[in-house]
Every structure is written in structure tokens, then in C-alpha cells.
């Protein structure tokens, strides 16, 4: 299953006009004429959604990389702006680029050997004051759930992160993914069902 089925599958959600009051198409026309100022306005208009999307793809373990990946995404958007034909909304097109950029980074990170900075390693160790029961019961369950979320297909994992980690409502997710509430709810339901199955399989083993 690809994200393209979910991102922008319905009429694009209207994004607020910030800054100049020009719509995206007019901003793009000015940028292609060489105006950097208008590209700044385009970034300003879409950066919040791009940040939400990228951080949800990368997940809580890679928070520190979100800004770097968003920069890469906007550079790609700028580089390919001349190829944008306006067949879909600009948001749909740009967020797909951001989503794919984030996935590429995530895959590159997965190929690297895992290292943990020493200070994080010491922070993650259970404190001697907390008894073994305290560290295992709640913490283990939460960690097991997060691991199961990490194993989900990309789009389900992203949706779970948007809703449960970042706390976005269904309507806010619709804006980030440029999709309809019905579609988002249906995908979220499927994501929870898959996760439930994965967790029960883990308990039975």
C-alpha cells in the first residue's frame, strides 16, 4: 500500500493564505521568475504541515533530524517547481515530496549501524530507586507498543504518529495529508486493527 493512495486522494483541503495573499499558483509563477522572497512565503505557508508530516514519518526516535529533512524536502520542492503542472493541489504535490524525502532518510538511517550517545545511554538506564516492577510493567508495555508501531507499513505508522504521538485531530490530519475525514478514519481504523493483531500475536508467542 502506498501513501499516494491516501495523500491527496480527495479534493485538496484549502490552505490558509499567509503573507502576500497570493494563492499558491501565483506564488509559484513569481518564484519561477526568480523571486526568492515568494519562495519564503511558500515555505511559511506550508512549513507547519511539512514538519508535522516529516516528524510523523521519522517518529519520536529521530526528532533531532526533522529540521534537516524538512530543509531537504523544501530544496527538492524548489528544484522541481518548474515541473509542477497544477494537476493536483500544490499541497498534495509538495507533501508527497516531503513524505518521500522523509522515507528516504528513514531507510538510510536504518542501513546505518545503531549507536546511542553515551549521555542518552545513561539516561535510559533504570534508576536504582525504582524497583524492578516499576520499570517493567508500564515501561515495557509502552516500549512493546512503540516497537509494534515501528513494524507497521509506512502509512499506518505515520497516521498513528500523527494522531497518538503528535495529538492531531482527524481534521488536522486531513490538512496534513490533503485527504478526507472518511479516508483518514478508515486508514486509522485499519492501522489500529493491524497493531492489535501484532500485539496479540506477540502475547501468544
Amino acid at each position: 500500500m502506498e501513501v499516494t493512495e491516501l495523500i491527496g486522494n480527495d479534493a485538496p483541503v484549502e490552505t490558509a493564505k499567509t503573507g502576500s495573499g497570493l494563492d499558491d499558483q501565483n506564488l509559484i509563477a513569481r518564484i519561477l521568475e526568480g523571486s526568492d522572497r515568494h519562495f519564503c512565503l511558500l515555505i511559511e505557508r506550508h512549513e507547519t504541515h511539512v514538519f508535522q508530516l516529516v516528524s510523523s514519518v521519522l517518529g519520536p526516535d529521530h526528532c533531532s533530524r526533522v529540521e534537516e529533512v524538512c530543509q531537504d524536502a523544501f530544496i527538492k520542492i524548489h528544484r522541481n517547481l518548474a515541473r509542477f503542472r497544477g494537476e493536483s493541489g500544490f499541497g498534495t504535490w509538495a507533501y508527497r515530496i516531503a513524505y518521500n524525502t522523509a522515507l528516504d532518510h528513514l531507510r538510510a538511517l536504518a542501513r546505518r549501524p545503531k549507536t546511542i550517545p553515551l549521555d542518552q545511554f545513561y539516561d535510559a538506564r533504570p534508576s536504582p530507586q525504582a524497583g524492578p516492577a516499576a520499570t517493567t510493567a508500564g515501561g515495557d508495555e509502552a516500549a512493546r507498543t512503540r516497537r509494534a508501531v515501528d513494524q507497521l507499513p509506512d502509512i499506518y505508522r505515520t497516521l498513528i504518529h500523527l494522531h497518538y504521538w503528535k495529538g492531531l485531530t482527524i481534521n488536522e490530519i486531513c490538512q496534513v495529508l490533503q485527504s478526507s475525514p472518511g479516508t483518514v478514519k478508515s486508514y486509522l481504523h485499519r492501522a489500529r486493527a493491524r497493531l492489535q493483531n501484532a500485539l496479540s500475536d506477540g502475547e501468544n508467542e
Binding site: 529540521e67 508495555e141 507498543t145 508501531v149 503528535k166
Partner: peptide, 20 residues
């Protein structure tokens, strides 16, 4: 389970002022 799994997780950064 999902709510408790993510409640202690760090929040992701918002765009910084110099981002653009």
C-alpha cells in the same frame, strides 16, 4: 495502549525562526 506509549515521548520540533 497507544496513548500511554507516546505520552512520555519527546515532542518534535516546530520550525525555528531562521528556518526559511
Amino acid at each position: 495502549k497507544l496513548k500511554s506509549a507516546f505520552e512520555q515521548q519527546p515532542t518534535s520540533p516546530a520550525p525555528s525562526t531562521g528556518f526559511q
